[in-house]
Amino acid sequence: MKTASAQAGRRKRFDRVVAVMHADMYRFATWLSRDPAIAEDVVQEAMLRAWKSLDALRDDSAAKQWLLTIVRRENARYFERKRLETVDIDNLTASQSAMLAETDDAQLDEVRKAIFRLDDDYREPLVLQVLMGYSTEEIADLMDIRQGAVLTRLHRARNKLKDVFESEELRNRD
């Protein structure tokens, strides 16, 4: 059996490397699943998996990428297990509606809804780049696709959002 001090050391490492990422993991999971309630479940499972596999993480500086990979896999498993339908934008759950609750900034609200409506293939690299700060090369590694594919998806994602952004700007001027 591991000694008490070894267990405590392991727990400290977990707190230092994993627990600090809790909020980032939740935000990432929320934008992957488009449902805060699902994201909470996914992140709980991801935390447990990270706890069990902590010894497999050789380099603490790689923790963020390791954890987001675990979140991606847990999200995929969740949807596979539950066989959930794709999101119906006209019939949101209470938790999805809360995610898109209106603020005082109509332009922000419209862009948030537009990001929500993006296909998974476009939304995920955008979240990884803008929210998580990854380079296109790092995103390619994380998503296991070519860097060229990442660039294409980002470019298409932004062009879709640009139309929304520009129409809101016009509305605000009028």
């Binding site: 809790h22 992140v43 935390m47 332009q107 922000l108 948030r112 955008l126 803008v130 929210l131 952004f165």
Partner: peptide, 16 residues
């Protein structure tokens, strides 16, 4: 704007 839109509020998260 995208960055602000993605930074949704975080509820109180429970550790497992």
């Amino acid at each position: 704007l995208i960055s602000r839109a993605l930074n949704i509020d975080i509820p109180e998260l429970a550790m497992p």
